[in-house]
C-alpha cells in the first residue's frame, strides 16, 4: 500500500483532462462564430441589384398599429396602420449563439483496502468407556477405542487364568475417558485511503462583435414607419 496518496495522481494527464474540454468549447465557439457569419451573409443579406459585389440587408415588412388623436382631441377608436420595413438581422437573437458556461468537474478517488479473513477451527473429541467384568463362570468385556485391545487382552488373560482354578476370582474394571480440544482464531486487517481532486473552470459568454453591434444599432435607429397606401 502506497502511503503517499498524492502520488497516485502523478501519472494523470491533467493537461488533457482540463485542456481537452476547454479546447472543445473554444472549437465549438469558433464553429458557431463561423456558422453565424455564414448565416448572416447568406440569409440576412442579399446581393445588390446594382452592384453584384455589394451586400444589402434583407428587409421584411411589418404592419405597425398605433392609436392616434383625432381632430376632436380624443383617441381614435380605430388605430392607424403603417408599414415598416425591418432588417431581418434585427429579428434574430444572434448574441445567444455562444457557450455561456463551461464547467469541468474532475473527481477522483483512490481507495485501497485489504482484508484478510482467516478462520481456523479445530474440534476433536473422543471418549472411551471400557468395562471388563470377570466372573469365574463367565467373562464379559466391552471396550471402545484404543483401550479395547488392551482390555481384550486383559479379558483373555483372565480367561486363561480361569483355566487355573487356584487363581480364579471375580473382578470388574470400568474405565471412562474423554478428550476434547477446540480452537478458533480469526484475523482481519483492513485499510482504506481516500483522496479527491476537483477542478472547476468557467467560461463566460462571448460578447457580440462590435461590427455586428454597430450594424444592429444603425438598423434599429433608422426604422421609420411609413403610412400605408390604403
Amino acid at each position: 500500500m502506497n502511503t503517499n496518496i498524492a502520488s497516485q495522481f502523478s501519472g494523470l494527464p491533467m493537461k488533457a483532462l482540463i485542456g481537452a474540454p476547454l479546447k472543445a468549447a473554444t472549437d465549438a465557439n469558433a464553429m458557431i462564430a463561423n456558422a453565424q457569419t455564414q448565416f448572416l451573409l447568406t440569409t440576412c443579406f442579399e446581393k445588390s441589384t446594382d452592384d453584384n459585389n455589394q451586400l444589402v440587408p434583407t428587409m421584411v415588412n411589418f404592419t405597425l398599429s398605433r392609436s392616434v388623436i383625432d381632430k376632436n382631441g380624443s383617441v381614435s377608436s380605430s388605430p392607424v396602420k403603417m408599414d415598416i420595413s425591418i432588417p431581418l438581422m434585427t429579428l434574430i437573437p444572434i448574441n445567444s449563439l455562444a457557450i455561456e458556461r463551461l464547467k469541468v468537474s474532475f473527481n477522483m478517488e483512490v481507495k485501497s483496502s485489504r482484508e484478510i479473513n482467516k478462520v481456523d477451527s479445530f474440534d476433536q473429541q473422543g471418549s472411551n468407556v471400557s468395562k471388563v467384568r470377570k466372573a469365574p463362570e463367565r467373562a464379559r468385556g466391552r471396550s471402545q477405542g484404543r483401550l479395547h485391545g488392551r482390555k481384550q487382552r486383559t479379558a483373555q488373560n483372565a480367561n486363561e487364568q480361569l483355566t487355573k482354578p487356584s487363581q480364579a476370582h471375580e473382578f470388574e474394571t470400568e474405565l471412562h475417558g474423554s478428550l476434547a480440544k477446540s480452537s478458533q482464531g480469526e484475523l482481519q486487517q483492513s485499510s482504506a485511503a481516500h483522496a479527491s481532486y476537483e477542478v472547476t473552470l468557467e467560461a463566460g459568454q462571448l460578447p457580440l462583435p462590435n461590427g455586428i453591434t454597430t450594424i444592429l444599432d444603425i438598423f434599429s435607429k433608422n426604422m421609420m414607419p411609413l403610412p400605408s397606401k390604403n
Binding site: F39, T63, S65, L88, S96
Partner: peptide
C-alpha cells in the same frame, strides 16, 4: 400603444431564417 405584426408576404423569408438559425444552434 404600438403593436407590430409580420406581413403575410414575408412570412416565408422569416420562417426560413429562423429555421436556419435553429439548425445552427
Amino acid at each position: 400603444d404600438v403593436s407590430i405584426a409580420l406581413t403575410a408576404t414575408d412570412k416565408d423569408v422569416v420562417s426560413n431564417a429562423f429555421n436556419k438559425f435553429e439548425q445552427i444552434r
